[in-house]
Design a protein around this nucleic acid. Structure first.
Length: 288
DNA sequence: CGAATACCCTGGCGGC
DNA sequence: TGCCGCCAGGGTATTC
């Protein structure tokens, strides 16, 4: 699933292959892909055609292309969204939702999304704490790769919560970019069980956890960055090659790389959480 | 008001 | 072999 490192790979691809190009046509093949664009698909296309894509930007898992009109095309990949750069004439992907065609006659930009949790919209931008953001992103916190990310403020925000630590890690208004995969990897590195109460974490432990999340996403970006080529803006919305480096996520029954005990899987928020029973013991009073 | 839950989707895959 | 049901899960609206 695309989390921060995967979305950053896509952003870099767009910066290289889409920025600076003038759009001559936008075709929407599935209305659900633009459902967040309230005025509808025709308005969506009309606001983009005739403009030039001027830059590719990102905050957390949100991605957007600045338009020469002053608006921005906002994208969220959801679970299965891809942005692909494809030569004209390439057969349509089975789940092709939106196609951008350019004045230079070069490669098309295609939004492909099997499960349609992702989508595109054209948005106005606003200033928030010195950053220019599309309106729906205004409430999203800076992510750990943001040059102006404030680790101390993030630690304080995390510890102010009255909830389980993994819920807080996934809360995009505290720190953005972390999803289920990197949350489990960060918790494993910090030797914390996902149900530990946030407000009982020491400042140092919370800082260690956020540092671990930052490190694991940095490592994933370095690996994911090697696996896209000129045609594909991203890596199929998957984790790139980083899945080979996962210590906990998806590793149920596999030995913990640190202590050898089999990794367990527990239900969490209608999905799964993976942890080591020895390195990440249940908090006091925990029961499933 | 903050926290927790429901819901939106589709296809791959395990099991029978 | 075919089909049923489970599972993946981020963000937002709704409920508690």
């Amino acid at each position: 699933m695309p989390e921060l490192p995967e979305v950053e790979v896509v952003r870099r691809g767009l910066a290289e292959h889409a920025a600076g190009r003038a759009v001559t046509a936008v075709d929407v093949f599935h209305d659900r892909a633009v459902r967040r664009h309230v005025p509808g698909a025709v308005d969506f296309a009309g606001r983009i055609v005739g403009t030039t894509l001027t830059a590719a930007r990102r905050r957390g898992k949100y991605l957007w292309l600045d338009l020469s009109s002053g608006e921005a095309v906002l994208a969220h990949l959801g679970m299965s969204g891809q942005l692909l750069v494809q030569p004209p004439g390439t057969p349509d992907e089975k789940h092709l939702r939106v196609r951008f065609t350019f004045a230079d006659g070069g490669p098309e930009l295609r939004f492909v999304d099997q499960r349609t949790f992702g989508g595109l919209s054209v948005e106005e931008t606003t200033e928030v704490d010195g950053a220019t953001l599309p309106l729906p992103v205004a409430h999203i916190a800076r992510d750990p790769m943001d040059p102006r990310f404030d680790p101390d403020a993030a630690v304080a925000a995390l510890r102010r919560k009255r909830t389980e630590v993994k819920r807080a890690l996934l809360d995009q208004t505290l720190v953005s970019g972390i999803g289920n995969i990197y949350a489990d990897e960060a918790l494993w590195r910090a030797k914390l069980h996902w149900a530990r109460p946030t407000d009982k974490l020491s400042r140092a432990k919370a800082a260690e956890l956020l540092g671990a999340a930052t490190d694991v996403m940095d490592a994933a970006l370095r690996v994911g960055g090697t696996s896209f080529d000129a045609l594909y803006v991203n890596v199929n919305g998957q984790s790139g090659y980083f899945d080979r480096s996962l210590n906990a996520y998806g590793q149920e029954g596999e030995p913990c790389p640190r202590c050898g005990r089999p990794i367990r899987r527990e239900p969490f928020m209608n999905r799964s959480s993976f942890s080591c029973p020895r390195c990440q013991p249940h908090p006091a009073g925990f029961s499933l």
